[in-house]
């Protein structure tokens, strides 16, 4: 059986920062933090599934404001002009790119699903479509990042 090494927190942070700075106009700095204050309420949720020599999912949650910044940076418009469908599309594509770069760390062959995006809530009570049947997955990595005080978390969940 192929030996699979789980990517480190530092590697996930590096991928997130590279994707952030490469695809967003006026990206600003995405910094790694140890955790979030209670005041932070993540509201936009996305995931993408990896299957093959490693099986699990990459789950991203962020505040609405961070999601608007992602969408604004990708669509080249101001945050106030971002429509809901643009926000969903942009967070989905952001998740797809991060998921693809994480997938590349696992032994080939691995496949990537299309991303799923949901809004408002937590993964526990508001799962993006397609994530309902992933209750057997356990979290193996979680990193917390911030852009101008707005939270963005990336979790790696393994299907055991």
């Amino acid at each position: 059986m192929t030996e699979v090494l789980i990517p480190s927190d530092a590697t996930i942070v590096e991928i997130a920062q590279e994707v952030w700075s490469s695809i967003l106009e006026d990206a600003g700095e995405l910094t790694s933090v140890f955790g979030f204050d209670e005041k932070h309420e993540t509201a936009v949720l996305a995931f993408i599934e990896i299957t093959g020599n490693w099986h699990g999912s990459v789950r991203i949650s962020c505040s609405v404001q961070a999601a608007k910044h992602i969408a604004a940076g990708m669509f080249g418009k101001s945050e106030i002009d971002v429509e809901d469908d643009e926000l969903s599309d942009a967070v989905g594509e952001f998740t797809n790119i991060i998921g693809g770069n994480i997938k590349a760390l696992f032994p080939s062959p691995c496949n990537l699903s299309l991303p799923g995006v949901a809004g408002i809530g937590s993964f526990a009570d508001n799962l993006p479509p397609g994530l309902e049947d992933k209750i057997s997955e356990v979290q193996v990595v979680e990193v917390h990042l911030e852009w101008e005080g707005e939270p963005l978390s990336i979790g790696l969940w393994e299907n055991k």
């Binding site: 969408a71 990708m74 669509f75 080249g76 599309d89 942009a90 989905g92 594509e93 797809n96």
Partner: peptide, 11 residues
């Protein structure tokens, strides 16, 4: 299929 990616590439 992503409008946001099309937007980036078109720009």
């Amino acid at each position: 299929d992503s409008r946001s990616m099309r937007s980036i590439l078109a720009r």
